[in-house]
């Protein structure tokens, strides 16, 4: 489980987050959605320990949370296996070789293990990026826009993989611009607007909250934000 309470963050005069709280249980998949500049990446960065909140707290230290940033954080001149091995060592995994083998197998990159990352496609880089986030078998995993660089096939494989992790008890939080992706995969959504958490619940509940019949989830989401003045 991962719990954040009353997180606030300012960038100069701009309030990026306003007392946002969130609890994600083991085996739960939560999507953070909202317009551009709503504070999605800021919230995930604070949960991951990359950025510090001005106030509020996170229940787990960064070392216990897997983190997959939006831009692949990999060394292009190292091979896939070398990248995984480096981060497994830095994460102090008990059995580095086993952790690397496991992630290569789970992400389907075993055949590309010896290839330099700079030669991989965007989709494959993202798979390595995700694999590094999962090296230490974290109980909570955070992903920032994980499917942005992926084609539909790769996207489908990613979600299949993440669902497997959720089924194994991992708590996953991800941000996305793709509202339909949130509706399709997330158990719950957290809607952020201007740094404020304006909704937490299932996609279905959001549609019911808006109440207009015949609207799909994306339309309901837009209508919800409009009614809230965003």
């Amino acid at each position: 489980m991962i719990e954040a309470s009353a997180l606030s963050k300012r960038f100069g005069a701009r309030r990026a987050l306003r007392e946002v709280s969130l609890t994600v249980h083991a085996g739960e998949l939560v999507a953070i959605i909202g317009p551009n500049g709503a504070g999605k990446t800021t919230l995930l960065s604070i949960l991951a320990g990359e950025a510090r909140a001005d106030s509020g707290g996170v229940s787990r230290p960064p070392e216990e949370i897997g983190w997959v940033p939006q831009q692949a954080a990999l060394y292009g001149r190292l091979t896939v296996a070398e990248n995984l091995r480096l981060f497994a060592r830095l994460e102090r995994c008990d059995d580095v070789a086993a952790a690397v083998e496991r992630m290569l197998a789970q992400t389907g990159l075993a055949e590309r293990a010896g290839d330099r990352v700079e030669t991989l496609s965007g989709g494959n880089r993202q798979r390595v990026n995700v694999a590094i986030g999962l090296l230490s078998e974290p109980e909570a995993l955070l992903l920032d826009e994980p499917s942005t660089a992926l084609d539909p096939g790769q996207r489908e494989r990613l979600w299949e993989f993440l669902r497997g992790r959720v089924d194994g008890g991992t708590a996953i939080v991800y941000s996305t611009h793709n509202v339909q992706e949130a509706e399709r995969h997330a158990h719950r959504v957290l809607v952020l607007a201007d740094g404020e958490a304006v909704y937490t619940g299932s996609p279905r509940e959001l549609e019911q909250t808006v109440g207009a019949s015949g609207l799909d989830f994306e339309a309901a989401f837009v209508e919800f934000l409009r009614r809230r003045g965003h």
Partner: peptide, 13 residues
């Protein structure tokens, strides 16, 4: 440039 800095300093080093 490789975006690795943030990943490294969040507890790894």
């Amino acid at each position: 440039e490789e975006n690795a800095f943030r990943r490294l300093v969040r507890g790894l080093v």
